[in-house]
Structure formats: C-alpha cells, structure tokens
C-alpha cells in the first residue's frame, strides 16, 4: 500500500485530548478574540491546520455533517474525517453542522451556511476559518458578550470584505453562524453575538 493512501492517526488518548481541546474551544467562544492554544505536536492531514483537525476530532461525529472545500473533501483530509469522526461530508454548505473554509478563498460566503431558524438558532453551522495568522494584520476591534469593554484582534489572510460579511452575520443575531479562526495550534472564537466596533 502506498503511504499517501494511508489515513494518518487521530488522537492517541481521545478522552483527555478531546477534553483539553474542548476547554480551549469553550474559552475561545465564550471570550471572543482571545487566542487559545490547543495541544502542540498533532499531525493533521494535508490541508487542515492542526487546530482545525483537533477541533473536528473533538466535536464532530455521525450526527454532524461537515462541509469541506472540494479539494480537501476528495483528498486525505476527507478520508481522515470520514474514518475518525464517521461524519458525512456534504456538498451543500447549508446542510453542514461544521464547515472548514480557507479565509482567503472567495467562496463560499458566510451567508451560504446555515444560520439556524428563529425557533432553533442552535442549529446553525460552526465555520472553522483557516487563515494565515491570528496576529499581525489589520486591527479589528470587537465588543459583545464575553468581552469586557472591547478587544482588538488582528488576523491575517482573510478575504476582502470578510469583516463586512461578519457584521452582516452578527446583524442576524440570535441567528447566524459561529466562527472559529484557526492557524497552526491556535484558535480564536468569533460567535455571532460578537459585534465589530471598527476595522483599522
């Protein structure tokens, strides 16, 4: 068997690795804009940031359809997620519980994902946005639940108009998608409740 056809391993210790990763994600989404680190040294399949792979391994299973860009879906990342999570990989963004997008890619838009319904806003998609970095870019000032006053973030590698899309998403509150920005072993949560004060 050729090595590129092999599915790389998931968690060596699923109970404690997923618990630690979940606490990082919980803090990330309850205190938006605070960068959280997941455990280092995880070998993610090609195309997924280690933090993205760890988040999906922690949260996704047969109950949660995942949307991936076509290139990832047909590559080792898709096979890896099917095997380890048992999750269905869907082609329609609006059907997904979790989605992985490239922050710099032009499609799909945040509005293409499921924002939930007015009676069940929890059924919305959680979008993992893989970007080039979580610091060093344009400064974006956030406010909202989980933020005392305001908080600055500066991710890089996001498409032009991304913050306008995010603001439009926040307008839908309590509907809307929740974002987790990921790069390397770091994640940064941007739930729908977060407002953008200004982009500099």
């Amino acid at each position: 068997m050729q090595s590129e056809n092999l599915i790389s391993p998931g968690f060596a210790d699923p109970v404690f690795q997923s618990q630690a990763a979940f606490r990082a994600l919980l803090t990330a989404l309850s205190e938006p804009g605070l960068i959280q680190q997941v455990a280092p040294g995880f070998a993610a399949p090609e195309g997924l940031e280690p933090a993205t792979a760890i988040a999906l391994l922690t949260l996704a299973d047969y109950e949660t359809p995942i949307w991936l860009p076509a290139a990832l879906r047909d590559g080792p990342a898709g096979a890896w997620l099917r095997f380890h999570c048992g999750a269905a990989l869907v082609e329609e963004p609006a059907q997904a519980s979790f989605a992985v997008i490239d922050g710099a890619a032009e499609a799909p838009l945040l509005a293409d994902f499921n924002p939930g319904t007015d009676q069940f806003p929890d059924r919305s998609t959680t979008v993992l946005v893989q970007c080039a970095g979580l610091a060093g870019g344009d400064i974006v000032t956030l406010s909202g639940p989980g933020i005392a006053g305001s908080r600055d973030i500066a991710p890089i590698g996001l498409r032009p108009g991304f913050w306008a899309e995010f603001s439009a998403n926040a307008e839908l509150y309590p509907l809307g998608v929740d974002l987790i920005l990921s790069q390397g072993e770091a994640v940064l949560g941007l739930p729908r409740s977060t407002q953008i004060v200004e982009v500099r």
């Binding site: 919980l26 989404l29 919305s124 409740s193």
Partner: peptide
C-alpha cells in the same frame, strides 16, 4: 456541541 452553541447565543 450544545455548550458551544449555548455560549454563542
């Protein structure tokens, strides 16, 4: 998953 959605809304 329910907790993350609860925190977001």
């Amino acid at each position: 998953r329910a907790l993350l959605k609860a925190v977001a809304v």
